[in-house]
């Protein structure tokens, strides 16, 4: 969002606009966070939905700043103009972020976050500032969102209302939730894994018209099934599989091969059919 303003209106180069985009999420995250930290589960979910809608409305309302309905055009920085090179850049950034967030898990702040999630009262008794910890989590995720948004803008090479507002925002938000759940909700790598799994499928089957058309149904079904039967996502599946391989190598390897084979086979079938 802010990347767009900075680059298009002020003519800033991308490398300066990116940190700005990340930084710009901080006040928003704080405003959202300060309210959200006081809320629990259900109330928080309602607040999030409301915030998402209201922010989208507001940003594009003020056409002067944001280019209005038509949005702006943004250009990728010089060495990464082609899709392939931009992809390499994105991959590198994504891996770096996964590494950082994974590192966070074993840091002091990360351990505090885990404690707060597990049992708020006990965490408080241990001297952890619950309020500050939650707010930090909101900030970090806000900054990550800012970076993601900036790269998304460059991927689409334009920032328009339709790309950042309902119904697409809702569909995208749900897809994000799906990605996180399918990957594994309690691991940074899981989110990445889920994203790769889903988007690869989305792209591979884009040619298969009938499959792409049903992607919404497919991903929603995936979300519900994972939540019901494998709440730990693909990470849990992988862990269970690994344990099985260690305990009973033959059966485990056969099962893993069967799962992978089935998926590859299905993919091949879809591509053939389309």
């Amino acid at each position: 969002m802010v990347t767009g303003v900075a680059m298009a209106s002020w003519g800033w180069p991308f490398w300066l606009a990116l940190p700005l985009a990340a930084a710009a999420t901080i006040p928003v995250s704080i405003i959202v966070g300060v309210t959200a930290v006081r809320l629990k589960g259900l109330y928080l979910a309602i607040a999030t939905l409301t915030f998402a809608d209201a922010l989208g409305e507001t940003f594009f309302k003020y056409g002067r700043v944001t280019g209005g309905q038509s949005g702006w055009i943004v250009h990728r920085p010089s060495p990464f103009r082609s899709d392939a090179s931009y992809y390499v850049l994105l991959l590198a950034v994504a891996m770096a972020l996964v590494w950082m967030v994974t590192g966070l898990r074993s840091s002091r702040v990360g351990r505090a976050m885990l404690a707060v999630r597990t049992n708020e009262r006990e965490a408080q008794a241990l001297g952890i500032n619950v309020y500050k910890t939650k707010l930090t989590a909101f900030l970090i995720s806000g900054v990550l969102g800012g970076i993601g948004g900036a790269f998304l803008a460059l991927l689409l090479t334009s920032v328009t209302r339709s790309a950042f507002q309902s119904p697409l925002v809702e569909a995208t938000s749900i897809l994000l939730v799906t990605v996180v759940v399918v990957g594994g909700i309690d691991r940074a790598l899981g989110a990445f894994l889920g994203a790769v799994a889903l988007v690869v499928q989305q792209q591979v089957f884009q040619g298969a018209r009938f499959f792409f058309a049903y992607f919404g149904i497919y991903s929603a079904a995936l979300l519900v099934l994972f939540l019901l039967y494998r709440p730990g996502g693909l990470m849990q599946v992988a862990r269970l599989q690994w344990r099985l391989i260690r305990a009973r190598p033959r059966v485990g390897i056969a099962a893993a091969a069967a799962i992978i084979g089935l998926n590859v086979g299905l993919a091949w079938l879809f591509v053939r059919l389309s």
Binding site: A171, I174, V177, T178, G216, I217, S219, A220, A221, L223, V224, L227, L228
Partner: peptide, 8 residues
């Protein structure tokens, strides 16, 4: 899950 059902 309600979100998933909504999408479905």
């Amino acid at each position: 899950i309600t979100i998933g059902i909504a999408q479905l």
